[in-house]
Amino acid sequence: MTDKVLIVDDEEDFLNIISDRLTARDMNVTTASSAKVAIKKIDEESFDAVVLDLMMPEMDGLETLKVMKERNPDLQVILLTGHATVEKGIEAMKLGAMDLIEKPADLATIVERIKRAKAEKIILVEKKSEERIRDILTRKGW
């Protein structure tokens, strides 16, 4: 099964190239050049991982992360940044980011993080299914 990833960055050239490279690695890539578009996409579709730029016009990465996590707490978000400060990193982790990668990043690192995000998501989905089944069994008294 291919990994489904959403890349969010206001740098169109970056989006185009990384999209091509990840697609060549059998990933199903969707791109968004603004936070607004990205939020709309996560409302419409399910993604294994979201790779999100920290600094964007209008709504920055941390604000976007907050909104995304409010809408979908299980969403696996990897932040990408041109200048990671320790404070920003801590804030991002507190808001539920899975990881923070500094630009320019090695593609192998990004791919590895996306795969890890997908694994995390599968664990979360399985855990939820298990809880649901246990809940049904308890309520029905089988």
Binding site: E11, I17, R21, M55, H83, K103, P104
Partner: peptide
């Protein structure tokens, strides 16, 4: 400025990878 330069480097880095 360093952020801007990092952004240009990120594009060039991906281009080299491509």
């Amino acid at each position: 400025i360093s952020h801007e330069i990092k952004n240009t480097l990120a594009v060039l880095n991906e281009s080299a990878g491509f």
